[in-house]
Design a protein around this nucleic acid. Structure first.
Length: 688
DNA sequence: CTAGGGTTAG
């Protein structure tokens, strides 16, 4: 990628910058929750020794060390201090500390003097924001005196919790309403996807005299229009925004851009984005992610590059978005550059920018860096671990995957259902069926999790691949939900390997019902019949496909040489070097046969002569791409090839021979996973 | 004192 050239910096050239970032990061609850007393700063210790507890609490509050502050308050402070409560409650709200909040509340109640409305409002807000609307309501109901703010806090609390009907009830009950009340209600509807209700309420609001909408109101109502795809209402409000002069705020611009992105076009969204006077990092991030979301990767990367050149600093959300795009595109080169940039400008090591890094490296098959990042960040985060386990599983290192799972358990983090999907797939790739079944059992028995469709799909994939169809069918018959397409596709795949025609027919039948338009099912089933020599069935299926207008997705491979992408289709003759490539493949084929390669023509559907079949598979797109790469690069260079479909059995075997003969490392990323061919072996150990 | 936009894993 040329666009990042000026920013390239080796991501791992130094570890000292990592240390700096560790120091700079904010105190995140997850990372620093376990700070023990011995770690307390000396001033606080001194104050405690002198029994100046109130001051100690104040300092801890400033340092956002909620737990310790509340502990001291609870045990040592005997008097009431309104201002202390206010800051403690604020901190509880910030950190979602319900437990600490209720301790503070209890402390307040033990006092002679009754707390004022101001403080009570804070308590209601604290309970609401920390997730207990029951307690919030209880405090509200018991308040002797209430002001408008008390009501507003309750409404916004219910709205925030997604309890819109309750919110509306309180809203309708209250006597006076100001912009706060209306906005809280409107934004609640918008966030819960009830855009129409929000728009309706906004119309009502405009009829109320003396209750003007402000920037908060309009940004909420615009996001409401976006969520229900009401472009026309959105445009009307857009006009209102201009007329009322509310267009000087970056959040308003950002929601407008979102509106046009969601129900207009990316071009309109970009137009608004360009027009916005103030563009903060959120607007940038949203616009970049919008491009990636629509699959317009070049524009996404380009805009990210523009952002880096602007005065706005990308944040962890921005990094996570770009890195996840890189992961999806297997664009390790760009991902590395982004990583390098992050190291320079700094990022929060305990954010999902860090886990996005692990994810990116895992997806790109660079497990060394993935592991390194995970350990460097010291962010004991389940998502990162899951990415790592999955990465190992998909990159042919199932032992490392299971080892990582054991390490994860040692940290005390409880794995969730997604983690087990990764663990089971590792067992599948390693051929560890019995161990996999043990893990499968433990999901329910040991960890008390409910099986998801994916768990069943994984375990059936495992059993079907190893030909244990009896056990597979037992499980299929016991599944409480309707098996999904992934499950049946796995079963079908296993039947292909072991030639189980009966179960294959059942699986295919189910798949035809779920996704009749997917050609892959027809092709696989036809392959199974073809392998068994049942040509009548094969032509039947071909006829059905024709009738339904389905065609096989053409295989396509591409390879990047000197920043230029070369694309090959099956049997493609259009490449300028096609003749050289063919000659080279011919030579290669001779050497391969001497080494023991036998073309596997099972994958060829057509009922044609063997020789013709061999011809067909010789020109599979990945073979063309590899041959081209071998010709144009110097000896010893490793090649990276991308493919849109799964690798076929013959190509897989051929590539093993080619890696041995050419003494090259060949990395193939197919639609499912990475294959790393080296010295006649593949990292996937023939599971894919 | 209360309200707004973008937000990981398979």
């Amino acid at each position: 990628m040329l666009i990042f050239r000026h920013l390239i910096r080796r991501a791992f050239s130094t570890t000292s910058s990592t240390q700096t970032h560790l120091k700079n990061q904010s105190l995140q609850p997850k990372t620093f929750f376990n700070r023990v007393r011995g770690d307390r700063d000396p001033i606080v210790n001194r104050l405690c020794k002198d029994r100046r507890y109130t001051e100690a609490v104040r300092i801890l509050c400033e340092q956002k060390r909620l737990k310790e502050a509340v502990e001291i308050l609870d045990h040592h402070v005997k008097q009431s201090y309104s201002s202390l409560y206010t800051s403690l409650l604020l901190l509880c709200i910030q950190k979602r500390g319900l437990k600490e909040g209720s301790v503070v509340h209890r402390h307040m109640k033990g006092l002679e003097e009754e707390p004022g409305v101001f403080l009570c409002n804070r308590v209601v807000e604290m309970y609401a924001k920390c997730g207990s609307m029951e307690l919030a309501r209880k405090v509200f109901d018991e308040m002797r005196e209430r002001d408008l703010c008390s009501w507003n806090v309750l409404v916004s609390g219910y709205a925030y919790a997604g309890m819109l009907d309750e919110a509306r009830q309180v809203f309708d009950e209250m006597g006076d309403r100001d912009s706060f009340s209306w906005t809280a209600m409107i934004s609640g509807y918008a966030r819960s996807g009830r855009g129409v209700d929000a728009l309706e309420l906004f119309r009502l609001m405009q009829c109320v005299e003396g209750c003007r909408s402000n920037k908060f109101t309009v940004s909420s109502v615009i996001s409401a229009a976006a969520c229900c795809a009401c472009l026309n209402s959105g445009k009307e409000i857009h006009g209102h925004i201009i007329r009322a002069g509310l267009d000087s705020d970056e959040v308003v611009w950002s929601s407008l851009s979102d509106l046009y992105g969601k129900c207009g076009s990316l071009e309109q969204a970009r137009y608004i984005f360009n027009k916005a006077l103030g563009k903060d990092v959120v607007s940038w991030t949203a616009m970049i992610d919008r491009y990636f979301g629509e699959g317009r990767r070049e524009e996404g990367y380009q805009l990210f590059s523009n952002l880096m050149e602007s005065r706005v600093k990308p944040n962890d959300f921005t990094f996570a978005g770009v890195l996840n795009a890189c992961a999806g595109h297997a664009a390790e080169d760009i991902g590395k550059q982004v990583h390098g940039y992050m190291m320079r400008v700094g990022f929060d090591l305990s954010s999902f920018a860090a886990s996005a890094l692990v994810h990116m490296y895992s997806k790109c098959g660079n497990m060394t860096n993935a592991k390194r990042v995970l350990h460097e960040t010291k962010w004991l985060d389940l998502v990162s671990w899951t990415s790592l386990i999955n990465g190992y599983a998909q990159n042919g290192q199932p032992e490392e995957a299971l080892q990582s799972f054991e390490l994860l358990l040692e940290t005390g983090i409880r794995p969730d259902h997604v983690t087990f999907v990764a663990v089971l797939s590792a067992c599948t790739h390693a051929g560890l069926v019995d161990k996999g079944l043990e893990y499968f059992e433990s999901i329910k028995e040991k960890y008390g999790l409910t099986y998801t469709g994916d768990h069943y799909a994984c375990v059936l994939d495992m059993l079907a691949r190893s030909g244990r169809f009896k056990e597979a069918e037992d499980i299929i018959n016991k599944i409480p939900m309707k098996p999904n397409k992934f499950l049946w596709a796995s079963v079908l795949g296993g039947c292909r390997i072991h030639g189980n025609i009966d179960l294959a027919a059942r699986a295919a039948e189910a798949l035809f019902e779920i996704e009749p338009e997917n050609p892959a099912t027809y092709i696989t089933l036809a392959n199974i019949y073809a392998t068994a020599g049942k040509w009548g069935e094969v032509s039947n299926i071909r006829k059905i496909m024709q009738d339904r207008g389905l065609t096989k997705k053409p295989g396509m491979s591409w390879i990047k040489i000197k920043r230029e992408v070369h694309v090959f289709l099956i049997g493609d003759t259009s490449h300028p070097m096609f003749k050289e490539i063919c000659d080279y493949l011919g030579e290669l084929s001779k050497k391969m046969r001497e080494e023991g390669y036998v073309p596997d023509t099972k994958a060829v559907l057509h009922d044609v002569e063997e020789e013709q079949k061999e011809q067909n598979i010789t020109y599979h797109s990945e073979k063309l791409a590899v041959a081209f790469g071998l010709i144009v690069t110097p000896p010893g260079t490793s090649l990276k090839i991308y493919k849109n479909l799964r690798t076929c059995v013959d190509c897989h075997s051929a590539l093993k021979f080619i890696s041995k003969i050419s003494k090259r490392r060949l990395v193939v990323r197919d639609s499912n996973r990475f294959h790393c061919f080296e010295e006649g072996r593949c990292s996937c150990k023939d599971y894919w």
